[in-house]
Design a protein around this nucleic acid. Structure first.
Lengths: 222, 222, 222, 222
DNA sequence: AATGAATGAGGGTTCATTCAT
DNA sequence: GATGAATGAACCCTCATTCAT
């Protein structure tokens, strides 16, 4: 009966699922989850509405699947691994560049996650616990052993790592998604350099931490 | 004709509008704009469904109103103004603290904006152009004149300012909304200090920019 | 207490009712009864929505009032009376002209009645019985005694009268409301003349009723 | 893929559309377009509310479809064609009878059009231009070549044709829809004969057009 | 597996009417 | 009398989901 060998059938099945998931991601990024109907996803994927339910139990389950398929986590882990043996300078620069290009390739996902995160705070918390916290700690550990020892006492490395991610993410969003790049064009290279520099040495690296100088006031002109 | 003095009626009217707007913001932050029905907003505010339309033309117009009411912009502008005459150290620290407490007071808005931003990229771009870019530039200008002159050439101050906002925002979200704070509790004070330090002097302030040292391994002092 | 004398108050009251009725007629003719809201009528009349209900029990009762106020019947009766002593020629011509100008002055009513008649067939039947039938008969009686005696046997005068009204009405509607006048402009004078002629002598007056000639047939070639 | 042959499915689809259109026409004629809800149409047709939207895009689009389906135009054109080679007498008589029976078979449409015409004057004007004016002219042309040549100068044939339609229409409405027939019963045959006679020779065919006699004036007994 | 007609709950919105002021 | 906020029923329409074919 089955003329198509199981493996091949499964391949076909999986291909269809993928297709639907890709289409969904694209449409959701553009219009939002609620605003995109199953009918639209099916149409865009070239199948009938009913066929959708052959491949996914429900719209909601497709959402979970899409998020699972596109998880950033493995990439981040790989990234961390790659940087393990580099110098701090190289590592930070590599991380910034790697994260930036990853975001560029997954704009749609960024939009989708932004949008859906608030609705799924509880599930998100679980993911945070299971995935984010550990990789956050891994990076913090790396950092701790690569920065001047005194410095590690002054800053929380865990928070620093998150701050680094925040810089990259928000600058990416403003520049690439909100069109700030059109008004103040800055090259990708300048951006990653700035972010790297900023994270490594801040805006005023020479100023001693304990003696905040009035930066303008020339020290006694006499 | 009107037995109630106009001022009092207006006050009542405005109170109702506020009530509805507040309820809406709360529900939207929890469940999302699309998922929250007008009926639910009305019920939560203790009025009939139809009454909603006495106060707002449509659900969509309420959204715009909520965003307008809660605009961060005036606060940011005030913040900038306040910091104008402080030293860099004080200014950055003040900015971080101010922004953090503002976010704490407007958690709901953060969630709402995250969620709705992707759907309204085009409108958002306009806001960016009209509001974000200018205040971004104002802060960048302040920065430019307060950091070591050589440093201003090495970093884009505009990007730096955005990076600062990104740090604060993402650390806030992870700590306060995603519950990372429960797993790695860090005091608000430590956080703001870390962020301030990071922005001012980075993780490795002593390291010269041009001679990236292998941070740990002392290259055989011999 | 009442500083305004009753009669004057009544006059004011009636003036407001009139105003509302006029506005309603206008709006209904333009947009239809169902599509025009009480709020719109009130606004257009310059009063608050609630005030409407001081003057009319309901929207429906206003409709009845408007129809009552604008009844064509008295005018038709007067018209008949006026024509009573004229010759047939003069009478028909006068009726056509009178009806036409009446319609011109009451376009709005024509539209309203067209629209509402089907919904109120039952009430309409009553009006027909009470008002139309009698005046129809009065006109038929007049006709009967003014046309050649043989002719009265060949036609139903009652139907003839209605046919006359039909001619006038439909030509009016097509010419004045449906804009046929713009494509084939015919002067009002030509129209009323044509209708009068048509009603009196038809399109082929010379042809004997009993010997329908092939109209083209050349008149005896001999 | 489709187990049901396309033709059969299409037939079924079209049958359902027809059913809905018929039900709608009936209900609209009874209660009016605005007053009849989609739910009611669906219920009467024996389907769920949502099913309506499988067959029609909107309530409004169903209205257009109903009007299209029931267009009188093709029938009128056929009627004209049929009469082309008859004598005037036969042609007029045939037209009157044909129109009358058409109206009898489409009472509902008459009510619907009466009701909706005023709301759609603009669209109606277009139809008038595209359809009514041409067929009006065709009939006028026919008339022009079939009535005594002198007569064509005295009347506007275009107006005459419209007047004929008006007679038929209004007599039909009063007799069949407004129940005048119950008070003054006249057989359909008498009606069509009267209308035909009236159109051909008027109420006073013998009276010369140029010498309107005082109809009362005793025929000089001398 | 694939289809698309069918469903009915639910959403946003309008509106005639009421009523406290 | 005059007002306009308040109401809730009703309306049109959408959509996730089911199911017979």
């Amino acid at each position: 009966m089955a003329r198509i060998p199981a493996s091949q059938r499964d391949a076909f099945y999986e291909a269809r699922r993928s297709e639907l998931a890709d289409v969904a991601l694209k449409l959701w990024a553009e219009q939002g989850y609620d605003t995109t109907s199953v009918a639209e996803i099916a149409r865009e994927a070239g199948v009938a509405k009913g066929t959708f339910y052959v491949y996914f139990e429900s719209k909601q389950s497709l959402l979970l699947d899409v998020l699972r398929r596109n998880s950033l986590v493995p990439n981040v882990l790989r990234l961390i691994d790659d940087l393990q043996h580099d110098s701090l300078e190289t590592a930070v620069s590599g991380f910034v560049r790697g994260a930036w290009s990853h975001l560029s390739e997954h704009r749609e996902l960024v939009l989708l996650v932004m949008r859906e995160l608030p609705t799924h705070l509880d599930e998100a918390r679980e993911v945070v616990e299971r995935v984010i916290v550990p990789s956050n700690e891994a990076l913090a550990g790396y950092l701790e052993s690569h920065i001047p020892s005194g410095r590690a006492a002054e800053l929380s490395t865990v928070i620093s790592v998150r701050a680094l991610v925040g810089m990259i993410l928000v600058v990416f969003i403003s520049q690439e998604l909100l069109g700030a790049g059109r008004h103040l064009p800055v090259s990708e290279d300048d951006i990653t350099k700035t972010l790297t520099e900023l994270f490594l040495r801040g805006v005023a690296p020479d100023a001693p931490a304990d003696a905040p100088p009035s930066p303008r006031a020339p020290k006694d002109p006499t």
